[in-house]
Each structure stands twice: as C-alpha cells, then as structure tokens.
Design a binder for these strands. Structure first.
Lengths: 215, 215
DNA sequence: CATCAACTGTAACAACTGTCACTGAACTAC
DNA sequence: GTAGTTCAGTGACAGTTGTTACAGTTGATG
C-alpha cells in the first residue's frame, strides 16, 4: 500500500528529489475526495498546500451573490498555487476548489511548505513553476473575459474541457452557464449555433466535440 | 548622490536587510523613465526584475488587435511580480508595463534575483509577498470584469485611481475607455450619470472625485 | 404505464454596450 | 484673431446578452 503510494507520487511528481519524497511520505496526509466535494472555500483559512495525485479539481471564484466563474483546472501533478503562497500568518482563501472527479490529494502542512523552499531545490523550482503556470492560465482566462464575446469564450471553455477530459463533455447546459457566469438559455442558443456548423453534436447531458480548431 | 540613492532605497524598501541593500547598490542598474515610456512589452524577453523606486507604473494586458485593459498599478516600494517569476531560462513577458508618471526603477539582473532567494530571507519574503499581493489584485480585477456591469467597473477604476494619485484624475474619457476596453462615448455617458449624482465633477482632461463610497 | 423531475429548445422582449454621425467647447499655434 | 486639433456631449440605431415564459424530451421511479 505504502509502496503503491510512493510509486504514485513519483509518477505524478517525477521532479522531486528522494529526500523530499521521504518527507512528503512521512509528514503529509493523503486524502480521498468524492466528486463534487469542496476542498477549499472562499474565506476559509488555508493550513495546507494541496498537491493533486489523481482525479481533477476545478479552481473558481465566487462572489457574494453566488455567481461563479472558472479560473482553471488542476490535473494530477499540479498543485494549488494559491495555497502555497500563504506565509506563516494565517491567510484566508480567495478562491473555491472543488473536485470534478473523485480525487486523491496530498495535504502538506503550511510550515513545511515554507521550510522546504530553502531545503529542497526541486521543491523550490516546483513552487516557482506552479506560480508561473497558474498566473499564465489566469491571464488567459482574463483575456477571454475581457476581450471576447460569449460565443468565443464558450469555445475556449469547451477546448479547455477537451484537454482535461476528452471529447465527450459530460456537462449540462446549466453547468456550463454557471462556470461562464451566464444563463442556461444563452448557452443553449450558442451551443445550437455551434452544432449547426458541425463543430459539435449535442446530446442530453453531454456534448460530443468534433472540431473546434477553426474557432 | 550615491548616499541619496541608498537613502531612497531604504525608504521605499525598509524591509531589506543591510547585506541585500549592499548587493542592490553594487549590482543593479538605476534607470529614469519618462512618462509614457514602455518598460516591458508583450513578447519581449525578461532579463531583469523591476523594482519601483519612485513614480507610478501601470501593468496591463494587450491583445492582438491592440485592445488593452488595466491589471493594476505599481507604486514605489512595489515590484513587478511577473518579472520575478521567470526562472533562469529566458521567458517572454505576457504583459505590458508603462510609466504613468516619470519614474525611477531599479533593474536587478535575473540571475541575482534567483540567487538572492536563498541568500536573503528579506528578499525571499518580499518576493512571496509581492506574488501574493499581485495575485489578489488580479483576482479583484477579474471579479470586476466577470461579475460587474460597466458602470460598476468604472467606479472601481476611479476608486483605484484616487488611491494611487489623488482625487483629481487627470485622464481623458478616451484614456479611461481604453483601459477598461470600452469606447469613449459609453464612458462619457456613464461619467455624466455619475456627475448627476454629485459623486464627481467633470472637466476637460480631468475628473474631480467627491465621493464614490456609496457605489 | 403513469408521473415527476431534470434537461433542452425557442420566441419575445428588455437592458446594456458599442458604433455612427454630428455638434460644440476648449486649447494651441500661427 | 483664426484655423486646426483634441476633447466632450448627445441622439439614433444595431448587436449581444439576460430574462421571462412556455413547450417538448428524456430518463428515472413506483
């Protein structure tokens, strides 16, 4: 069991040095998360850094009125950059993190995250790389909201979904509308238009993506 | 002259330890920037970390068609987080940085930024704090674009401007429209509405802000 | 099979934003 | 002062998105 776990960590985080792997195994908690469970809520204190071992997480923003929009997805081998950015003093989360699929996460206590930065070069690099990657993804999301009309944002959203979970997108129109902070009717309308161009086929509860490259 | 410079750095970056100050003075370049000058362009290679000693910089995003929108302002004592995030390999800038006022910047060569992280605790903390602060500001900007109508975004924009440069906002309607990725006529219309509520007074080339707290 | 709930399709309408066209006011340079 | 330029104000109109209202479809359950 423990050997399996170690193999799995090595597989998802091949860049970590041996000593770091040892510390992770010794000091952190592995947790299984059900689909739909919330891992982090806005306003909640962050006490651990989250590493994703298996499954799929979505990171999104929610405002006072319950509106939300998707920031990005985290795949196995990724970490939640924001949870690494909190220093010793307790910081509150600015974001929501929810499991899209049943997932396995590693929880590293905050004080270790800090310590490891100077202790392990591979950890340091991982943290920097994570920051940067997430910042870039956030900028892309920002671009799509700022510069693009909803039809283009929808295509951008579908493409990203294909990347993380294949050509069969198992979502209702309502779910998509929520993640884009729009409304169901509008999304239905736009999806219908996309279907007419043969880029996708609509079904109940899932969308089949043929080719979105032209958009 | 050099003593003046050191005093100035100490004033803007009081948290830096002595040894770090020494290295900054010895190894980095001080540069004077004229109002309107571009310090970093999208696609350009980043070779230095930028610390702001005096003046005011704006950090914004620009798309292929020349549309832009404001991400945030940098004030003296701040640093460009993105320019710190680049590791040894040459990374291209994802953003534009331009001087809003005549400014003094410190350019720290990339390899030192990296080195100092492990060498100086105060530098390390500064970098982490900068990342975090910028990420939060970016999230706020994102919120305002995603959740708010243009009238609210305009108020948010004006408020931020008051924070960095006082109650007299020296901008034309066209400049505001550009930074919000909107159009001049629309901004004029909304500003006029705001003026009618006595929150602001409009003049040629500047706006006088009385009270925006209600919005 | 009957019923119910969730999901999807659509039409009509309203609100917001962007665009076009034009006017006038303020400042600049000669 | 005059001409030219930049800036601001305004009305009309078009396109996009959100809202309301309702109908039809699918799938689950008893």
């Amino acid at each position: 069991m423990d050997t399996n776990l170690k193999d799995n960590i090595v597989k998802q985080f091949p860049q970590f040095e041996q000593a770091l792997l040892g510390e992770i195994l010794a000091q952190s908690t592995i947790k299984h998360i059900e689909e739909g469970d919330e891992i982090l809520r806005t306003g909640q204190y962050i006490r651990s850094t989250i590493l994703l071992l298996g499954g799929l997480l979505k990171v999104y923003r929610e405002d006072d009125e319950g509106n939300e929009f998707l920031m990005y997805y985290l795949e196995p081998g990724n970490a939640c950059a924001l949870s690494m950015m909190c220093t010793a003093r307790d910081e509150k989360s600015q974001i929501m993190v929810k499991a899209v699929l049943p997932s396995e996460i590693i929880l590293v206590p905050q004080h270790l995250t800090e310590l490891w930065l100077s202790k392990f070069k591979s950890w340091h690099n991982f943290v920097i790389a994570s920051y940067r990657q997430r910042f870039e993804e956030l900028l892309q999301t920002l671009d799509s909201i700022a510069f693009k009309a909803l039809d283009e944002r929808l295509v951008f959203y579908l493409k990203r979904h294909v990347q993380v979970s294949g050509e069969e997108i198992r979502l209702s129109h309502q779910q998509i509308a929520t993640e884009l902070n729009s409304s169901r009717e509008v999304i239905s309308r736009l999806l219908k238009k996309l279907e007419q161009t043969k880029a996708i086929t609509l079904h109940r509860n899932y969308i089949e993506v043929h080719d979105l490259e032209l958009f």
